[in-house]
Amino acid sequence: MAESPLTIWAVSDGRAGIEAQAVGLAQAVARRRPAQVEVKTVRWKGRWGRLPWRLIPLSALAPASAIAPPWPDVWIAAGRATLPLSTRVRRWSQGRTFVVQVQHPRTSLSHYDLVVPPRHDGLTGPNVFPITGAPQRLTAERLAQDLARFADRIRPLPAPRVAVLIGGKSKAHDLSPARAAAMGAEIAQAVSRAHGSVLVTFSRRTPQPARRALTEALGALPGWIWDETGENPYFAFLAAADVILVTEDSTNLATEAAFTGKPVQLLSMDGRSKKLAAFHADLAERGALRSFRGRLETWAYPPLDETGLAAEELLRRLDGRRT
């Protein structure tokens, strides 16, 4: 008889960048093994979620989170909000659930069957599988499908088409109006010199003054600056790009850009992060990333599919535990 499909929960607090990591890994597993993926969003009542995770009582879990038995075959979680649950689900399931935590959990590794942190965190252990960057949702098929959906808008744009992926404020970085204006001027000059076009998308974290400054600087170029109306063309931008420019604040953006095999150039921001600098050095060593210094560059490298490697490792360990 055929084996029943795996049940996989992808668990996060629902923030786009965090959820994408859990969902991306879950979907990569499902592409390799029959599986049913269910996305779970953890919500804590009132202000409980702002406390250190060890102080959050399970009674504070909002019913809408729908974290209850029957427990899945595989639990894939990302983010601090999931830790009060991830550290207990193996016990709740009497050891049946294979527990995976994406990112560095900052707690004992004994709670997990597998931890998938970014390599730049430096975490090691017998149940640790570090990857370059973070798990992501992209596939070659998804890129092609999204490009086809937006082809009428993108195809007429002159090459080189330059995807510009703008992040924003974080603990380590910011994007001031002055830096945004300077960044926009540098990009505009480089694209104009190449007689190309731009495909620009902003993050929810992009400050409005920076967004306005970049829109003003790049608005006269051929291209598309997505204003968040209508369907999101982000994946189509990646698929159509000849060169991808990405701000230095986001692991997800750079990881997804490197999956395409396109040249990825890093845009500097206000602030600095040692960990992100290590991540960028890792991407550069893999041949995917160079700094943007006022001109567009082209080169080739093997596309990075670290999510696929993590999915294969997960299944290898899951199968090993079952034998």
Rank of each mutant, 00 (worst) to 15 (best):
L85T: 02
F98R: 02
Q101C: 06
L58V: 13
L25W: 08
Q101M: 04
A16E: 15
T41N: 13
L55I: 03
V99F: 02
D73L: 03
P72L: 05
P69T: 07
V23F: 11
A35Q: 06
W53Y: 15
I56E: 03
P70C: 05
V74H: 04
V29F: 11
A30P: 09
R33S: 13
P63K: 04
S93Y: 00
W48G: 07
A22E: 10
E38A: 07
G17H: 09
D13G: 11
R43V: 10
A26S: 14
L58C: 10
A77W: 00
Q36S: 14
W53H: 11
R15D: 14
P34C: 09
D13A: 12
E19P: 09
A68P: 01
G14N: 04
A16K: 15
E38L: 06
D73I: 02
L58A: 10
G95M: 03
E19W: 10
P63Q: 06
W53D: 07
V37F: 02
R15M: 13
S12L: 06
Q94A: 15
A81G: 07
V11H: 12
G24T: 06
P105A: 07
P105E: 06
Q101N: 10
G14H: 04
A64S: 15
R91K: 12
S108M: 06
R50N: 11
W71D: 05
R106W: 13
D73A: 08
L51I: 09
R50M: 15
Q21A: 09
R47T: 11
A66E: 15
L58W: 12
Q94S: 15
V89Y: 04
W48A: 13
P84L: 02
T82K: 05
R91Q: 13
P69M: 05
L25K: 04
P34K: 09
R54A: 13
A16Y: 08
D13R: 06
R43A: 09
A22M: 12
V11Q: 08
R50T: 09
R50L: 14
Q27K: 13
V99L: 02
V11F: 12
W92E: 03
G49E: 13
P84E: 00
I76Y: 00
P105N: 06
A20H: 06
W48R: 05
R90S: 14
E19L: 12
G17S: 12
V102G: 04
P72M: 01
E19T: 15
R90F: 10
L85G: 00
E19G: 15
P69V: 10
R33Q: 14
R54H: 12
R80H: 11
V29K: 11
R32I: 08
I67L: 02
G79S: 00
